[in-house]
Design a protein around this nucleic acid. Structure first.
Length: 803
DNA sequence: AGCACGCCGACT
DNA sequence: GTCGGCGTGCTC
């Protein structure tokens, strides 16, 4: 008998290995690597992935696979290999890697039920009641009745049985279709012979005949022929129509049309950028290209034409975009060029919609997947190119296990398919640009804008100066004048507020007391709606006090600037301006994003005010002014990428102005206007920034000169946390290469979240063979404590944030 | 992760 | 004597 090696859906260190199962003979042909199965595991049943089929096992008492979950493998051989690679690269469980590669709808759902084996009359009366109308009840229901002892007795006796059900979270959507049992001619005859009182039924048949279709959905029949359920039922019962449930895709773009576009003529610069890409497509060569092009230099057109070539060769393509729901304009461009050959995967879709888009890819009904980070796992089997737009974006790094970076996954997959990867950005990450400079990646510069428009002029305003001149408002006189000017000229403005690390905290002006979350060492954020305080880390809420809890002073109020406050302020100083505010509060509802942007695009507002989410990809011709209210808020975060992130953000935001005929201007307000990241962003000088920042990184031994790994420890007890971290740090110092630096341990930048204390230590290394084994050993050493105690240890190789 | 098994304290 | 508390270890 054949043996299947199965990785079970139990994310724990002890079960992070394959278990062997017997393959029942009738399934020998179906059970192949990548198939999901249900297997008995201890007393229960769990889902598992078959990763290998063998002919012998070292274990002698094997159990049989109980059920098959897939007819076609959920994971291709390539993805199975990729999963193994992910496991090693990110130190996650194999099962977590597999699950990360599949849509959430495919995750298993478990239910424990109690089932009647014989007759309810055999049960004691208090139990018999529960099984009066049903043969099985859920365990939870039984638990609620508090009849444990009785249940246990009956289970032992055998009149009741515990069953473990395994299902999938997401379902396929099915729609009822009706099909004539005979051919059309016969149907015509049947319709004519219909008794006179069956008018509705005849109408339905006539409608089907007129439609000329061999099958018709029940919904169509109801609305088109005004047929009722009863008349349809009658026709089915008479055997005239046959009922059939067919799978349909949920279409997230049902009510959208996309304007078809054709390849555009390329500028000479675009041509020299695309030539080497086409070359490596033709030669089936794996190359990584760093397409470094200023905003408006036409990167997307290059992607589109390279993809077009790939598709003409019968191959497939993946395009990653930062967070696609933020840039409907991007979807439009791909859908416009490739129409129904595109699957879109992004967070704005429901799990069901994502599942359907994924299955289009699996069934090879599309050749292009456009999506956010996880779209990198699109189950294509003949990839011809992978494009990562805005390559520097931090959202390409997953912040939960498996902590992978989509760029690394892309390069690994492209190696297997011997196809090119194109990284595009106006502000490449230092890591990628350094590789391009060294010749590891091919640099493709696009230095001109397609429409030859000059980049917008950027003014940096020193807010300290404003304060000295007696301007205490959040708008500098320069920004205010410019705003006024746009209003007069009927042009639009984008106002950007970077809220990170700068939300509205509440402080007492008399004693300086700042209200903090009782569970987290972080100040609470003031929310205007409901006059409430909220903790952004644990969602704890508290009413806004009218007196200081510390000194009972009345002078307690909120500081800092939120978008709501800016909106109020705008209403005061520019009452005639129409403002659209975009932040978490106004965009939480589905489709709110598109709606608000649509309104702004139609000119229904003068000012678009928002947070990070408006920094990306917006392209409105009438926007001629971009204001950045506080440029330096994230400059002071404890993060070695702070300067890089600031530069990227400012450059990106500036790119929103004057993209078309009208020239644009940018006003950046800052309390540290001389910082190089701000000054160089003002001059649109990426090369200058790159050189300057590389010096900093070299001096402080940060990436790209060193790799960084961070070990995080958290526990409800402070002493426990620090002592575990200390032990780990000592162990690492003793067991790593002598060139490797172990820094810390220190308390994390946010020392406590949800009543758990947090410590971390940073490892800087160049090449250290001992690192992964040492980290594995650490996890191994603490696995028991992590399972029993509340200890959590997490490891992030190449973190993008240290918070 | 679940779940069973097993070894100690406080009860009818 | 037994019920049930949770620490320990296993799952093909």
């Amino acid at each position: 008998m054949k043996i299947a090696r199965v990785v079970v859906d139990v994310p724990a260190m002890q079960t992070d290995r394959p278990f062997d199962y017997l393959v029942p003979e009738e399934w020998e042909d179906v059970i192949v690597p990548g198939i999901r199965v249900i297997v008995p595991f201890g007393p229960r049943k769990v889902q598992g992935f078959v990763i290998e089929v063998a002919s012998a096992s070292e274990v002698n008492k094997l159990k049989k696979i109980s059920e098959i979950f897939d007819l076609t493998p959920a994971l291709t051989d390539e993805l199975l290999e990729l999963g193994k690679w992910l496991t090693e690269k990110t130190l996650c469980f194999q099962i977590s890697a597999f699950q990360a590669m599949l849509p959430a709808a495919m995750k298993a759902k478990y239910e424990k039920r109690i089932c009647l084996t014989r007759n309810s009359s055999e049960l004691p009366p208090e139990l018999a009641v529960l099984f009066e109308n049903t043969r099985d009840i859920s365990w939870k229901e039984a638990e609620a009745h508090n009849l444990f002892a009785e249940l246990q007795k009956e289970i032992k006796k055998g009149s009741l049985e515990v069953v473990y059900q395994v299902a999938q979270k997401g379902k396929q959507k099915k729609v009822r279709y009706l099909k004539p049992a005979a051919d059309l001619e016969a149907l015509k005859k049947t319709a004519e012979e219909m008794p006179a009182q069956a008018g509705r039924q005849k109408a339905a048949l006539d409608y089907i005949i007129a439609s000329q279709k061999s099958e018709i959905s029940a919904a169509d029949l109801k609305s088109g022929a005004n047929a009722s359920d009863s008349s349809i039922k009658a026709l089915v019962q008479k055997g005239i129509l046959a009922e059939e449930w067919l799978e349909v895709y949920r279409d997230p773009f049902e009510h959208r049309t996309f304007k078809a576009t054709e390849n555009m003529a390329l500028t000479s610069e675009q041509q020299s950028a695309i030539a080497p890409i086409l070359d490596s497509i033709e030669a089936s060569r794996h190359d990584v290209f760093m397409m470094y092009g200023v905003t408006g230099s036409g990167k997307t057109e290059v992607y589109l034409q390279a993809i077009d070539r790939v598709m003409k060769e019968g191959k497939e393509a993946i395009v990653l975009v930062p967070e696609i729901s933020l840039t409907p304009q991007m979807v439009d461009r791909f859908k416009g060029r490739f129409g129904s050959k595109v699957a879109v995967l992004h967070s704005g879709l429901s799990t069901g919609e994502k599942y359907d888009e994924w299955r289009k890819i699996q069934r090879k009904e599309v050749q292009l997947a456009v999506g956010a980070r996880s779209a990198i796992f699109a189950p294509f089997e003949n990839l011809g190119i992978i494009v990562i737009d805005e390559e520097h974006e931090s959202s390409y790094k997953q912040e939960e296990n498996p902590r992978y970076h989509a760029r690394d996954v892309a390069i690994h997959r492209a190696e297997s398919y011997r196809c090119p990867v194109v990284l595009g950005s106006a502000t490449p990450s230092l890591e990628s640009f350094a590789r391009a400079s060294k010749g590891v990646y091919h640099l493709l510069p696009l230095r001109e804008r397609v429409n030859s428009r000059a980049l917008p002029e950027v003014n940096v305003v020193d807010m300290r100066e404003e304060l000295r001149n007696g301007n205490r408002s959040m708008f500098s006189s320069d920004l205010f004048e410019q705003l006024q000017l746009r209003l007069d000229r009927k042009e639009q403005t984008v106002l950007f507020l970077n809220r990170r690390g700068f939300s509205a905290f509440v402080m007492c002006r008399d004693c300086g007391y700042v209200i903090q979350c009782p569970n987290c060492d972080i100040s609470m954020t003031y929310h205007r709606q409901g006059n409430k305080l909220k903790c952004h880390y644990c969602a704890h809420e508290a009413p806004m006090p009218s007196l200081c809890p510390e000194c009972s002073s009345e002078h307690i109020r909120f500081f800092g600037t939120g978008t709501q406050k800016v909106e109020e302020e705008l209403a005061k100083v520019l009452p005639e301006a129409r403002v659209i505010r975009m932040d978490v509060d106004t965009t939480s509802r589905k489709g709110a994003h598109e709606r608000l942007l649509g309104q702004f695009g139609e000119g229904k507002a003068d000012i678009l005010l928002g947070t990070q989410m408006i920094a990306k990809g917006l392209d409105f011709p009438n926007v001629t002014l971009v204001g950045v209210l506080a440029a330096d808020t994230m400059l002071h975060l404890p993060d070695f990428r702070a300067a890089e992130k600031t530069f990227q953000l400012l450059t990106q935001v500036s790119g929103r102005a004057g993209r078309h005929e009208l020239t644009g201007e940018v006003v950046i307000q800052s309390y540290t206007p001389d910082h190089y990241s701000i000054q160089l962003a003002k001059d649109h000088d990426y090369d200058g920034f790159y050189e300057r920042e590389m010096m900093e990184r070299k001096q402080h031994a940060y990436p790209p000169f060193y790799y960084v790994a961070v070990v995080n420890v958290s526990h409800p007890d402070l002493l426990k946390t620090s002592s575990v971290m200390e032990t780990i740090a000592q162990f690492l110092i003793q067991n790593l290469d002598s060139h490797t630096k172990v820094l810390g341990p220190v308390a994390s930048p946010i020392p406590r979240i949800k009543n758990r204390y947090r410590y971390q230590c940073m490892i800087k290394y160049k090449r250290d063979e001992k690192l992964i084994p040492a980290l594995k050993k650490v996890m191994d050493r603490y696995q028991q404590e992590m399972a029993r105690d509340e200890l959590v240890i997490s490891i992030d190789l190449n973190p993008t944030t240290l918070m």
